[in-house]
Design a binder for these strands. Sequence first.
RNA 1: GCUGGUGUAGCUCAGUUGGCAGAGCAGCGCAUUCGUAAUGCGCAGGUCAUCGGUUCGAAUCCGAUCACCAGCUCCA
Length: 720
Amino acid sequence: MTVASSQPVQITLPDGSVKTFDGPTTGAQIAGSIGAGLAKAAVAVLVDGVPKDLSAPIAKDAAVSILTAKSPEALEILRHSCTHLMAQAVKRLRPNALLEDGPPTEEGFWYDIKTEPPLTPEDFDAIEKIMAEIVKEALPIERIVLSRDDARTLFSARGEKYKLDLIERIPEGDTISAYKQGEFVDLCRGPHVPTTGIFKAFKLMSVAGAYWKGDARNDQLTRVKGTAFFTEKELAGHLQMLEEAKKRDHRKLGRELELFMHHDWAPGETFWLNKGNLMYKQLSRMMSELCREEGYEEVFTPMLFKVDLFRMSGHWDHYRDNMFVVPGQDSRTLEAADIAQWAARLEAEAATAVPAEEWNTAKAELAKLTTASARLSFLLKLKQVGGKHWNLFEKAPGVFVTMESAANGTYALKPMNCPSHMLVFRDRRRSYRELPLRIHDQGVLHRNEASGTLGGLTRVRQFCQDDAHIFLAQEQIEQEITQLISLIKRVYTAFGMEFARVFLSTRPDDFLGEKETWDRAEKALENSIRANGMEFKINAGDGAFYGPKIDFIVRDCLNREWQTATIQLDYQLPARFGLKFVNRNNEDEQPVVVHRAIFGSFERFFGILIEHFGGNFPTWLAPVQARVLTISDKYEGYATEVFDTLRRHGVRAERDFSAEKIGSKIRDGRNMRIPYLLVVGEKEEASRSVAVRSQTEGELGAISLDDFLARIDKEKAIRF
RNA sequence: GCUGGUGUAGCUCAGUUGGCAGAGCAGCGCAUUCGUAAUGCGCAGGUCAUCGGUUCGAAUCCGAUCACCAGCUCCA
C-alpha cells in the first residue's frame, strides 16, 4: 500500500477524456465528478481493467471505468456480494453456523455452510426474509485490510475454523482483507458493492452437500445455492429460462417421445424402445461408415474376460472397484467356514499392517458387523483407508493365494475396450507399413458406478462408446492427432454443436515413463489443436498417469458440462502388453496407443442430442419422419395408399386414422415432434397430393406426393 | 459411496388433525365424419415404492431397504 501523496492523479475515462485530481481519489469520487446519476448507479469500478471497490483509493494515474448495473463485469460483483448478504442472514438465523467459501458462479452464487442441523429448503423463506431486512438496513459494506495475525485473531474469536484454514492458504505476501457490513464480517478478497441497500432481486435455489476442500473424507457442508440480478425482470427471465430448459430435459423428452425407459431392476441401464433404438442404430451405423471411410478397421470383441486380462492391463489394480465381477462355471463357491477363516486371518494381518490410528477407527467399525462375510468385505476394502493404496493382500500372501485360487475361473465384464484391442494387435507380427493401425469397436461396456452418480443417459452402468485405438509410431502422433481433431470438429459441426471447452491435460506428478517423451507428446497435442485453430486451456498435471490427453466438453440444457470426445495418448498399455512392430530397419519397436472417442458414449451423446434439438430431430435422424392424418374415415383408402407409398420409399411413416378432429391430430403429431404431418382429405384425394405441415416451417400447403417424396429424399440424406 | 430431498393410476399432480383413494391428460367403448395445436358422453384403471413398527385404525407418524432428483467425490 502506497501512502497518500499530494501528487496530482490523472484518470483516463473510457471515452478517452482525462480528469485530473489533486491527490488520491476513489471510484466514488470520480463517478460523482461526472454526474450525480452515475454516482448513484455506480456499483464498482475497473482500475486498469481490474475490478475494485468504489471506495478503493486510486493514487496513481490510471484508466478507470465506472461499473453500473449495465456493465457485464458488475453482475459477478453483485452476486459475490449477495453471498455475503445470504451468509449474514444465515448467521442471524443460526448464530452457530460456520462459513466456508462462497463464490459467484455463471448462474448465481453459492456458499458452503456448516450448521447443525443442516439447512434445508424449508429455511429459505426465513433466510430470504432476513436478507430483505438487511437490504432495508442499507448497511455500508467496508473493506478492512488485516495482518495475518489480526485475521487469525478475528476469525478464531468467532470460532470460524474453515475461515482460519482459508487464511493459512492465502499465499505469503498477498493482502489479507475482510469485508464488514453491520455486525457481519467475512474474510474476502472483494471487490464488493458499496451497500446492502443495492440488492433488488435475489432468490435461494437449492441446497446440496459438498465436501470440505472437495475431499470425501472431510466434513460435509451444506452448499446453499442462490442467484441474484440487478432487476426483478432479469431474475424472472432467468427463472423462465430454467423452466424452458427443464422442458428440454432428455429424461422427460425420452419418455414423452417413447425413445427409452428405465426400470428399478436395472438401475443405470437403458431399455431402448423402438424409436430410440432406430436412432441409436442409425448413429452407430453412421459412425461405423465414417470410421471405415477414415481408414479404421472395425472389430467386435468379447464382453466377458477372465480377470487375467485385466491383471495385465492394470485395470484389476486400478479400476477393480468399478468392475462387475462374475463367477465362471469352474470357480468355487465360497464356503461359510472359509469366509470366517479368511476374515479372521485378514483381521490379524490388518492389525499389524494398518497404521495404529486408522486401525482403531476400522476396528470400531468392524465390531459393528455381525456376519463374517460383511467383515471380510470390509477388510478387503480397508486398503483404501486414508486414501492410501497399501494392499492387504500383499501384506498377507497366504490369504492372497487362497483368495486367488478361489477366484480362479472368475470373469469380469469389460469396462473399456482397450485391453481386447491390445490382444488384437498382438495377434500376429505387425509391420510399420500397417501403421497407423486404427481399430474401431462399439462393444458393450459395463462400469459399476457408485449409485449416487447415476442419472438419465448421461451417467449409466452399461453403455457403448464409438471407441477406437490407434497404434502408431512416435513420429506419427502429430499428423494423426491433427487429422483426428479435424474429424471430431466435422462431426460436431454436422449436428450444429460447439464445444464449451477444450482441455489439454498434461503430465501429473505420478507419471510413468520418460519426461522427454511426455514433453514431446504434449507439444505434439498442442500443435495439433492449434493446427485446427481451436481455443483450449491447459489443465496442468491433470493427465492420466500413462499419458497426456485432450478432453472436449459440451454443455447440456441445464448448463451442466459433460465430457464427450476424448483423445488420450498411452505409453503404458503397449508396454504392459509387450506390443511391438517391425520398423524400417528390421528392428522391434514399441508402438504408441491413442485412445479416442468422438461421441464419447452413445448414451451420453444421445442425451445431449435430445436436449440440443429439444426433441426436434432433423429428418434424417427422426425416428418417425412423417405421419399421415385423415380428415375423416372417408379418405382412409387414399391415405393408406399414401402411407404405403411412403413406406415403400423408405420413409419412416406412421398413420393417424383415428376419429379425432384434424386439430387434435395435428396437436398430437406436433407434440411427438414429427418432421412432417401429411393431411389427406377430399381435395388431396382428388389431386393425388398431400397437405404438408412441417414441424419447423409450419403449413406448406398441398404438394403432389411425388414432389413430397423428392423433398424428403433430400432431407433423409445422411450428412456428416 | 456421501449430504439433502422425493416416491399416490401409464403421465402430471391433489389428498386437511391419522378415519371409505381423487382430478386432468393418456387408454378403452359409443356417438360425431369434421380442413391445421385439445368434439361430446361413458367405462376402466391403485399392494399409495418395498419391508417392518406405532395405533382401534396409516398414503399420512417412526425405522430400514430400493429407486429417482439436486449436488459432492468420481467419471464417457
